[in-house]
Structures are given as structure tokens and as C-alpha cells.
Design a protein around this nucleic acid. Structure first.
Lengths: 146, 146
DNA sequence: CTACAGTCTACAGCGACTGTAGAGGCAATC
DNA sequence: GATTGCCTCTACAGTCGCTGTAGACTGTAG
């Protein structure tokens, strides 16, 4: 079995070298073999693990969820419902943020369309920002990550 | 004119005490008067500035945009189009993220609905995470903030 | 041999806060 | 006047998921 350097793994997995080292540092990737001079040497399996992480991250799963999913994956006898639960929770999260973003879009659109040019002193956008009661977003949660 | 402490301003503006101090530290809020013992003392005007910031942040404007908007506000003769441009740029940003999140939602939904229970070894969700070619999201940009 | 690209470690920085520690201030009650 | 209990102060570390930097070493091609 031939082994690859971190740079080759980086290309194979579509993940930056520094990011791979970061994943290793937080225990997501496991410590690879080293060459005599101390360079990391990965086997093909590492590409799979890295792709798994990248795909999960592309789907927006938080690191913690990725960690759990990886643990479940290495234990193929475990119940699928755990995986399902993680995915559903994430979907809920995504939907919640979608709702917030949609409300945001509506409010911004409304603000912008009511602007008729002129000076800032009479700008509707500014007025909306100044007028505290003019707030549609009822949730006072701030729109956050993802 | 009576002055208020940071705690009172916090309640009046709906912003945490620590956050107000943070806004001061990054130059968004300006340094207030101090009492003899060194406590911050704010005038009513501070409530307006704080509300402005909070409202803009609730609308998802990045700090930098908030800074620009505040500068424009204090110069009421300036052209409204600058404000409009900032708001439009932000709207574009929001729409882009909406698109990404929608794609994400679709993919997650599809993944989850194809899962029929059983063991992780044959779980469709896991399969989707493992199979690299099974990726809908064509933009390889990772879904980020907001 | 000389470039130059790749790799190593260790640590700082991003944004927008939040949390902590340890000290001091202020008003009300006993 | 002493105590209680909340408020405020500064300064700094932590959050998340990386990215960037510095300075040194390694590997390979010409």
C-alpha cells in the first residue's frame, strides 16, 4: 500500500492542508504515520474519512454532529435512528434559519422599495432603522450562523 | 438632563451591558461621561444610537455596514443613494444565503426521507454522506454566516 | 548546487460577541 | 454603622471553524 503526503491528501479530499492539520488537532482525523523526517503519511482510508467530513460540513452539519456521525459510522451495527435524529435536528436548524432569513429578506425589500431617493434626512431606509417600532421580525433572536 | 448608568441603558436599548462596552471598544458607541467613581453615564441620545445599532444588527447588517450607516446618519445632508446601496448589497447577500440554505434543505430532506431505519451499515443518510458523487450543492462555497 | 515547492510546529487572528475573575460602588435594610 | 445584594469596573480567555504567519526543515527537478 502506497502512502501519500498531506498535500496529496489535500488535493484528493478537496480540503486545505492547514485544515487537515486542524482536523487532526481536534481529534477528527486521527494521527497518521510519519516518515523518518517527520512528515505525515496517509493511507487511502484517510481520503474517505476526509471526504466524509467535508461532505458533512458542506451540508452544514456542525463539527460536533460530524464527530458523532463519524463515531456512528465506524460502528456499523449501531442503529440508524441515531443518524436520522442528528440529520433531522440539523434540518430543523436549517429551516429555522430559512424562516429568519425570509423574514429578513421581506423587511429589507420593503425598506428599499419605499426609498425614493433624496437626502438621508428623509430616507425611508434610515427611518426604518431609526424607528424602533417599525420592526417586523418578532423573534428577538438574532439571525446567526449557517 | 438626567444621565443613566450602563445597566439602565442596557434595559432601555435591549442590549446587554457587556455588548455595550464591546461596541464602545470598537468605536461604535463613543466614550460616555464618567461619574466620580468611574462609572459610565449616558444621556438619552445614547439610547437612540444603541437602538439604531441593534435594529441594523437585527436586520443582519454586518458591523462594517452599521458603521457606515451611522456615519451617513450623522450627516443628514448626504445622499440617500449611499444608504440604498448598502441596503441593496445586504439584500443580495441575504438572497444568496437563502438560495444556499434552500439547496441544503432540499438535500437534507431527500437524505432523511430515503432512510428506512435499520442499521447504520445500510443507512441512506450515511450512504449520502459517504458517497462523494451524490452531492447536489454545486457551489463549493461552504454555507457561511447569517 | 541551486531553486523552489512542500512540510513542520507553534501561535495569533478573524467576527461578534460571551463568560470569567477579582475588585470596587451604591442603595436599602437591619 | 454594618450587612446584604445587586451593579459596575477592567482585563483577559473562550466561542466556532478555520486561516494566516513566522521561521525552520525536507524533497525534488533542473
Amino acid at each position: 500500500m502506497r502512502q501519500m503526503t498531506i498535500g496529496q491528501l489535500s488535493k484528493a479530499g478537496g480540503v486545505k492542508v492547514t485544515t487537515i492539520r486542524y482536523y487532526e488537532s481536534i481529534g477528527l482525523m486521527g494521527e497518521p504515520d510519519r516518515s523518518e523526517s517527520g512528515q505525515r503519511l496517509y493511507c487511502d482510508d484517510a481520503v474517505h474519512r476526509l471526504s466524509f467530513i467535508r461532505h458533512a460540513r458542506d451540508l452544514g452539519f456542525p463539527m460536533d454532529a460530524v464527530r458523532q456521525l463519524m463515531k456512528l459510522q465506524t460502528d456499523p451495527g449501531s442503529d440508524c435512528s441515531a443518524v436520522d435524529a442528528i440529520a433531522r435536528e440539523h434540518l430543523n436548524d436549517v429551516r429555522k434559519r430559512l424562516g429568519q432569513l425570509e423574514a429578513l429578506e421581506g423587511e429589507l425589500k420593503r425598506m428599499i422599495s419605499s426609498c425614493e431617493g433624496g437626502e438621508v434626512g428623509e430616507c425611508r431606509v434610515m427611518a426604518a432603522l431609526n424607528d424602533h417600532s417599525d420592526c417586523i421580525t418578532e423573534t428577538h433572536e438574532r439571525v446567526t450562523a449557517l
